[in-house]
């Protein structure tokens, strides 16, 4: 049968499906080159072999799956959640709070977005829905002060996990990135090994800008993980390969809807499979 041979059309198709999934020209080129090399070295004969090899390469770019890291030295685990505007930070925090509470953890939330209109109310409403208390101050108050309050409250109440919401900020805004560093410092002052997770939230419908965002956040304050939201959309989130590979930062969760249950631990295999799924 000649239908499964390695043809120019096959290479074109592979390239196209990667680019259409937002994998990006750089990573796509690299992958195609790598595959051509493997075809030679491993004497591959069929298109199916190439397809399988591509899935292996993609999965290896993503690295192994990785779960949330909890505090070892202090009784309190602090999770700081950051990202550009509207990516899904606040909603993902509610989902994590829901998840962790169900696992028996005593969770507290900090309303660190004191800037956006009704951001505090949004987090409070989620807190009520999930049954988790929220520490907040007035709109426009200093986010560092909110975080300070929240750490004190968490310690007094004997909370296990404190999740800090922050205002959306584009990575290009110097002042806002400085503000984030300050929030991070407040956490480190009271919890020397914290924050135990510095999670960046990226919207799956984002294109090539995702890598610039992640790189800047990683440089400025460091990242321990990524959450990709809105995977229930038709977008594939192909930027994830460059993000995970370039920065060596694991993807921890996938958001798959607007409900509290719609957060699932990241699984590299199913992410790669979904990349090639037709709608």
């Amino acid at each position: 049968q000649e239908t499964d041979t390695i043809t120019d059309d096959l290479w074109d198709e592979l390239e196209e499906s990667l680019l259409a999934a937002d994998v990006g020209p750089g990573t796509t080129d690299w992958l195609i080159e790598r595959l051509r090399q493997r075809v030679e070295e491993e004497h591959m004969r069929t298109g199916s072999q190439v397809q399988r090899a591509l899935r292996e390469e993609l999965a290896s770019l993503l690295g192994p799956s990785s779960s949330l890291r909890f505090a070892k030295q202090s009784p309190l685990t602090v999770i700081l959640v950051i990202g550009v505007n509207g990516s899904g930070k606040t909603t993902s925090i509610a989902k994590m709070a829901y998840r962790l509470s169900r696992e028996g953890q005593k969770v507290l939330l900090a309303a660190g977005d004191t800037f956006r209109a009704a951001a505090i109310d949004q987090l409070k409403e989620w807190g009520e829905r999930v049954g988790v208390p929220v520490i907040s101050q007035h709109p426009n108050s200093d986010p560092g002060a909110v975080v300070y309050d929240a750490i004190q409250a968490a310690q007094t109440r004997g909370s296990d996990v404190l999740i800090v919401d922050t205002a959306g900020r584009l990575h290009t805004k110097f002042n806002l990135m400085e503000e984030l560093k300050k929030i991070n410092k407040v956490i480190q002052k009271f919890i020397p090994d914290g924050p135990h997770e510095l999670l960046m939230v990226i919207d799956a419908t984002t294109g090539q800008n995702a890598l610039l965002q992640a790189r800047k956040f990683a440089e400025d304050i460091g990242l321990t993980g990524v959450i990709i939201t809105k995977m229930d959309s038709t977008a594939k989130g192909g930027f994830a390969f460059a993000v995970a590979d370039d920065l060596g930062v694991p993807i921890k969760f996938i958001g798959t809807g607007e409900k509290v249950e719609n957060l699932i631990p990241f699984d590299p295999q199913s992410f790669v499979t979904a990349l090639f799924a037709q709608e």
Partner: peptide, 12 residues
């Protein structure tokens, strides 16, 4: 529409 949107913008 968000300026950061990727390839799916057309379909959306």
């Amino acid at each position: 529409a968000d300026a950061m949107t990727g390839q799916e913008a057309v379909r959306v």
